[in-house]
Each structure stands twice: as C-alpha cells, then as structure tokens.
C-alpha cells in the first residue's frame, strides 16, 4: 500500500512537471515530445489505476498517433518555411 502511495506521488509530480514543461517550452518540437512523454506517464498511471484497456488505447492512440500527427504538421510547415 505504501509503495503505491509513493509511486503515485512520484507519478503525480512527474505528470505536473512534464505538463508544465510541455506548456512552457518555446520549442514546438520539444513541447510535442514532452506531451508524448506525458501521455506515456498517463499510461503508467492508468495501469496503476487498474485500467489496462484504457492504458493500451492511450499508449497506441494518445502517445503514438497524436504525436505522429503533431510531428507531421510541424514537418510539413518546416519544409515550407525552408522553401521560402
């Protein structure tokens, strides 16, 4: 029981820190990557909270696909920027 409490405190703190960095970061790519990390942490917390289904979904969709979409958006824009 104690272990779970400690782990959840750590994860909670990490969640907040990473979220703050993701929001504050000036670099867009970094921000997106931190979001992905946040998502992974969320997966961990889902597992801790006994929600394997949600964890699986969040892992594939939240941290995988969404990050990919973010990156693609930034990628296409960067290319356009370099063209100009």
């Amino acid at each position: 029981m104690m272990l779970l409490d400690i782990v959840s405190i750590v994860i909670g703190a990490l969640l907040l820190i990473i979220a703050f960095v993701a929001i504050q970061s000036k670099d867009l790519i970094k921000s997106v990557l931190f979001l992905s990390g946040l998502s992974m942490l969320a997966v961990v917390s889902f597992v801790l909270l006994k929600a394997p289904d949600v964890a699986l979904t969040e892992a594939v969709i939240g941290s995988g696909l969404v990050t990919a979409l973010f990156i693609f958006t930034l990628l296409s824009v960067k290319k356009e920027g370099s063209k100009k």
């Binding site: 394997p52 289904d53 699986l56 979904t57 892992a59 594939v60 969709i61 696909l65 990919a68």
Partner: peptide
Amino acid sequence: TPGGGFPGGAMIASSIL
C-alpha cells in the same frame, strides 16, 4: 483481454504509418 477495436484499429493504422 484488454484492447479491442480502438487500440487495434490504431495499431493497424500505425502499421500503415
């Protein structure tokens, strides 16, 4: 088991990705 249409479908999509 855990999983189902949504993560599975997303996996299929990621394979195509």
